[in-house]
Protein backbone atom coordinates (compact mmCIF):
# COMPACT_ATOMS: atom_id res chain seq x y z
CA UNK A 1 0.00 0.00 0.00
CA UNK A 2 2.77 2.44 0.97
CA UNK A 3 4.33 1.95 -2.41
CA UNK A 4 1.11 3.07 -4.10
CA UNK A 5 0.78 6.14 -1.88
CA UNK A 6 4.36 7.04 -2.65
CA UNK A 7 3.72 6.59 -6.36
CA UNK A 8 0.59 8.70 -6.21
CA UNK A 9 2.45 11.45 -4.35
CA UNK A 10 5.24 11.31 -6.91
CA UNK A 11 2.66 11.43 -9.71
CA UNK A 12 1.14 14.63 -8.37
CA UNK A 13 4.64 15.98 -7.95
CA UNK A 14 5.30 15.36 -11.64
CA UNK A 15 2.09 17.07 -12.66
CA UNK A 16 2.53 20.08 -10.40
CA UNK A 17 6.19 20.47 -11.40
CA UNK A 18 5.12 20.41 -15.04
CA UNK A 19 7.63 17.61 -15.59
CA UNK A 20 9.00 18.01 -19.14
CA UNK A 21 8.82 14.28 -20.00
CA UNK A 22 5.24 14.11 -18.89
CA UNK A 23 4.40 17.38 -20.62
CA UNK A 24 5.90 16.18 -23.88
CA UNK A 25 3.80 13.02 -23.80
CA UNK A 26 0.59 14.90 -23.01
CA UNK A 27 1.17 17.46 -25.75
CA UNK A 28 1.90 14.78 -28.35
CA UNK A 29 -1.20 12.82 -27.31
CA UNK A 30 -3.40 15.87 -27.69
CA UNK A 31 -1.81 16.81 -30.99
CA UNK A 32 -2.36 13.34 -32.44
CA UNK A 33 -5.91 12.88 -31.17
CA UNK A 34 -7.10 16.39 -31.99
CA UNK A 35 -5.73 16.17 -35.53
CA UNK A 36 -7.29 12.73 -35.96
CA UNK A 37 -10.65 14.06 -34.72
CA UNK A 38 -10.48 17.06 -37.05
CA UNK A 39 -9.80 14.80 -40.04
CA UNK A 40 -12.38 12.22 -39.01
CA UNK A 41 -14.97 14.99 -38.56
CA UNK A 42 -14.19 16.43 -41.98
CA UNK A 43 -14.86 12.98 -43.46
CA UNK A 44 -17.52 11.59 -41.14
CA UNK A 45 -19.84 14.56 -40.76
CA UNK A 46 -20.64 15.13 -44.46
CA UNK A 47 -20.64 11.38 -45.10
CA UNK A 48 -23.11 10.67 -42.29
CA UNK A 49 -25.32 13.59 -43.31
CA UNK A 50 -25.29 12.51 -46.96
CA UNK A 51 -26.31 8.96 -46.07
CA UNK A 52 -29.12 10.34 -43.93
CA UNK A 53 -30.43 12.76 -46.56
CA UNK A 54 -29.77 11.53 -50.06
CA UNK A 55 -31.29 8.52 -51.73
CA UNK A 56 -28.60 6.78 -53.74
CA UNK A 57 -27.90 3.17 -54.58
CA UNK A 58 -26.04 1.34 -51.83
CA UNK A 59 -27.17 3.82 -49.20
CA UNK A 60 -28.58 1.22 -46.82
CA UNK A 61 -25.55 -1.00 -47.25
CA UNK A 62 -23.32 1.93 -46.37
CA UNK A 63 -25.34 2.63 -43.25
CA UNK A 64 -25.04 -1.00 -42.16
CA UNK A 65 -21.31 -1.10 -42.90
CA UNK A 66 -20.73 2.15 -40.99
CA UNK A 67 -22.54 0.85 -37.97
CA UNK A 68 -20.51 -2.37 -38.11
CA UNK A 69 -17.27 -0.37 -38.45
CA UNK A 70 -18.08 1.44 -35.20
CA UNK A 71 -17.02 -1.75 -33.45
CA UNK A 72 -13.63 -2.08 -35.17
CA UNK A 73 -11.07 -3.40 -32.68
CA UNK A 74 -8.24 -0.83 -32.41
CA UNK A 75 -5.51 -3.46 -32.73
CA UNK A 76 -6.96 -4.58 -36.04
CA UNK A 77 -7.04 -1.00 -37.29
CA UNK A 78 -3.43 -0.71 -36.14
CA UNK A 79 -2.51 -3.87 -38.01
CA UNK A 80 -4.20 -2.71 -41.22
CA UNK A 81 -2.58 0.72 -41.08
CA UNK A 82 0.74 -0.97 -40.32
CA UNK A 83 0.43 -3.14 -43.43
CA UNK A 84 -0.54 -0.14 -45.54
CA UNK A 85 2.32 2.04 -44.31
CA UNK A 86 5.08 -0.56 -44.04
CA UNK A 87 7.88 -0.52 -46.60
CA UNK A 88 6.20 -3.21 -48.69
CA UNK A 89 2.73 -1.68 -48.36
CA UNK A 90 1.00 0.58 -50.88
CA UNK A 91 1.75 3.76 -48.91
CA UNK A 92 5.21 2.71 -47.78
CA UNK A 93 6.87 5.41 -49.86
CA UNK A 94 5.59 8.12 -47.53
CA UNK A 95 7.71 6.74 -44.70
CA UNK A 96 4.99 7.42 -42.17
CA UNK A 97 5.37 4.29 -40.08
CA UNK A 98 6.55 4.98 -36.51
CA UNK A 99 5.77 8.70 -36.82
CA UNK A 100 2.92 10.72 -35.29
CA UNK A 101 1.47 10.85 -38.81
CA UNK A 102 0.86 7.10 -38.73
CA UNK A 103 -0.86 7.40 -35.36
CA UNK A 104 -3.09 10.15 -36.72
CA UNK A 105 -4.07 7.97 -39.67
CA UNK A 106 -4.85 5.04 -37.39
CA UNK A 107 -6.96 7.04 -34.95
CA UNK A 108 -8.73 8.77 -37.81
CA UNK A 109 -9.67 5.44 -39.39
CA UNK A 110 -10.83 4.22 -36.02
CA UNK A 111 -13.19 7.10 -35.28
CA UNK A 112 -14.34 8.33 -38.71
CA UNK A 113 -16.93 5.51 -38.88
CA UNK A 114 -18.11 6.38 -35.37
CA UNK A 115 -18.57 10.01 -36.23
CA UNK A 116 -20.25 9.17 -39.54
CA UNK A 117 -22.63 6.62 -38.01
CA UNK A 118 -23.65 8.85 -35.10
CA UNK A 119 -24.04 11.84 -37.43
CA UNK A 120 -26.29 9.82 -39.69
CA UNK A 121 -28.50 9.00 -36.71
CA UNK A 122 -28.71 12.61 -35.54
CA UNK A 123 -29.39 14.00 -39.01
CA UNK A 124 -31.89 11.29 -39.90
CA UNK A 125 -33.96 11.92 -36.77
CA UNK A 126 -33.93 15.65 -37.41
CA UNK A 127 -34.82 15.17 -41.09
CA UNK A 128 -37.82 13.03 -40.15
CA UNK A 129 -39.06 16.00 -38.16
CA UNK A 130 -38.08 18.76 -40.61
CA UNK A 131 -38.53 17.24 -44.05
CA UNK A 132 -42.02 18.41 -44.98
CA UNK A 133 -41.57 21.82 -43.43
CA UNK A 134 -38.28 22.49 -45.21
CA UNK A 135 -39.58 21.23 -48.54
CA UNK A 136 -42.67 23.36 -48.10
CA UNK A 137 -40.54 26.43 -47.47
CA UNK A 138 -38.67 25.65 -50.67
CA UNK A 139 -35.32 24.47 -49.29
CA UNK A 140 -33.30 22.39 -51.76
CA UNK A 141 -31.11 19.45 -50.71
CA UNK A 142 -28.00 21.53 -50.06
CA UNK A 143 -29.88 24.08 -48.01
CA UNK A 144 -31.69 21.32 -46.10
CA UNK A 145 -28.38 19.68 -45.22
CA UNK A 146 -26.89 22.93 -43.96
CA UNK A 147 -30.00 23.59 -41.87
CA UNK A 148 -29.96 20.12 -40.33
CA UNK A 149 -26.27 20.35 -39.46
CA UNK A 150 -26.85 23.77 -37.92
CA UNK A 151 -29.92 22.78 -35.93
CA UNK A 152 -28.29 19.53 -34.88
CA UNK A 153 -25.04 21.23 -33.91
CA UNK A 154 -25.27 20.56 -30.19
CA UNK A 155 -25.89 16.86 -30.74
CA UNK A 156 -23.12 16.84 -33.32
CA UNK A 157 -20.66 18.40 -30.89
CA UNK A 158 -21.29 15.50 -28.55
CA UNK A 159 -20.73 13.14 -31.49
CA UNK A 160 -17.34 14.72 -32.14
CA UNK A 161 -16.49 14.59 -28.44
CA UNK A 162 -17.36 10.89 -28.41
CA UNK A 163 -14.89 10.43 -31.24
CA UNK A 164 -12.23 12.36 -29.35
CA UNK A 165 -12.82 10.27 -26.24
CA UNK A 166 -12.40 7.07 -28.18
CA UNK A 167 -9.28 8.30 -30.01
CA UNK A 168 -7.46 9.55 -26.93
CA UNK A 169 -8.21 6.45 -24.85
CA UNK A 170 -7.10 3.85 -27.37
CA UNK A 171 -3.78 1.96 -27.02
CA UNK A 172 -3.65 -0.88 -29.52
CA UNK A 173 -3.55 1.01 -32.81
CA UNK A 174 -1.05 3.70 -31.84
CA UNK A 175 1.17 1.11 -30.20
CA UNK A 176 1.43 -0.88 -33.44
CA UNK A 177 1.86 1.97 -35.92
CA UNK A 178 3.67 4.41 -33.62
CA UNK A 179 5.93 1.96 -31.82
CA UNK A 180 5.89 3.95 -28.54
CA UNK A 181 9.27 5.54 -29.30
CA UNK A 182 10.48 7.87 -26.56
CA UNK A 183 10.33 11.58 -27.50
CA UNK A 184 8.82 10.68 -30.86
CA UNK A 185 5.65 8.60 -30.76
CA UNK A 186 5.06 8.03 -27.06
CA UNK A 187 1.55 9.06 -26.09
CA UNK A 188 -0.30 8.78 -22.79
CA UNK A 189 -1.87 5.38 -23.31
CA UNK A 190 1.26 3.66 -24.62
CA UNK A 191 3.41 5.34 -21.96
CA UNK A 192 1.09 4.11 -19.22
CA UNK A 193 1.29 0.56 -20.57
CA UNK A 194 5.09 0.69 -20.77
CA UNK A 195 5.81 2.48 -17.47
CA UNK A 196 3.48 0.15 -15.61
CA UNK A 197 5.24 -2.91 -16.96
CA UNK A 198 8.60 -1.35 -16.05
CA UNK A 199 7.36 -0.70 -12.52
CA UNK A 200 7.61 3.10 -12.89
CA UNK A 201 4.26 3.67 -11.22
CA UNK A 202 4.68 7.39 -10.59
CA UNK A 203 4.78 8.39 -14.24
CA UNK A 204 2.08 5.85 -15.12
CA UNK A 205 -0.22 7.13 -12.41
CA UNK A 206 0.44 10.77 -13.30
CA UNK A 207 -0.43 10.14 -16.93
CA UNK A 208 -3.38 7.99 -15.91
CA UNK A 209 -4.70 10.81 -13.79
CA UNK A 210 -4.41 13.31 -16.64
CA UNK A 211 -5.99 10.92 -19.12
CA UNK A 212 -8.87 10.22 -16.77
CA UNK A 213 -9.44 13.92 -16.10
CA UNK A 214 -9.47 14.53 -19.83
CA UNK A 215 -11.98 11.74 -20.47
CA UNK A 216 -14.27 12.80 -17.64
CA UNK A 217 -13.99 16.42 -18.72
CA UNK A 218 -14.93 15.59 -22.30
CA UNK A 219 -17.96 13.59 -21.20
CA UNK A 220 -19.08 16.24 -18.77
CA UNK A 221 -18.73 18.88 -21.48
CA UNK A 222 -20.79 16.77 -23.87
CA UNK A 223 -23.54 16.43 -21.30
CA UNK A 224 -23.56 20.10 -20.33
CA UNK A 225 -23.62 21.29 -23.95
CA UNK A 226 -26.63 19.13 -24.74
CA UNK A 227 -28.42 20.02 -21.54
CA UNK A 228 -27.97 23.76 -21.96
CA UNK A 229 -29.02 23.60 -25.61
CA UNK A 230 -32.10 21.60 -24.69
CA UNK A 231 -33.10 24.08 -22.06
CA UNK A 232 -32.51 27.11 -24.27
CA UNK A 233 -33.83 25.91 -27.60
CA UNK A 234 -36.52 23.51 -26.42
Amino acid sequence: MDEIYAAAAAAFGLILDLDPDLGEIVVLSLRVSLTAVALATAIGLPLGAAIALFRFPGRRTMAVVLNALMGLPPVVVGLIVYLMLSRAGPFGVFGLLYTPGAMIVAQCLLIAPIIAALTRQVVEDLWAEYEEQLRSLGAGPGRAMATLLRDGRFSLVTVVLAGFGRASAEVGAVMIVGGNIDHLTRVMTTAIALETSKGNLALALGLGFILMTLALGVNAAAFVIKDVAQRRQG
Binding site: E129, Y130, E132, Q133, S136, T147, D151, Q233, G234
Partner: peptide
Protein backbone atom coordinates in the same frame (compact mmCIF):
# COMPACT_ATOMS: atom_id res chain seq x y z
CA UNK B 1 -49.17 22.35 -41.04
CA UNK B 2 -51.40 20.72 -38.48
CA UNK B 3 -48.27 20.55 -36.30
CA UNK B 4 -45.93 23.29 -37.52
CA UNK B 5 -42.23 22.54 -37.18
CA UNK B 6 -40.14 25.32 -35.71
CA UNK B 7 -36.41 25.47 -36.31
CA UNK B 8 -34.14 25.64 -33.30
CA UNK B 9 -33.71 29.39 -33.33
Amino acid sequence: FQRPVMLRR
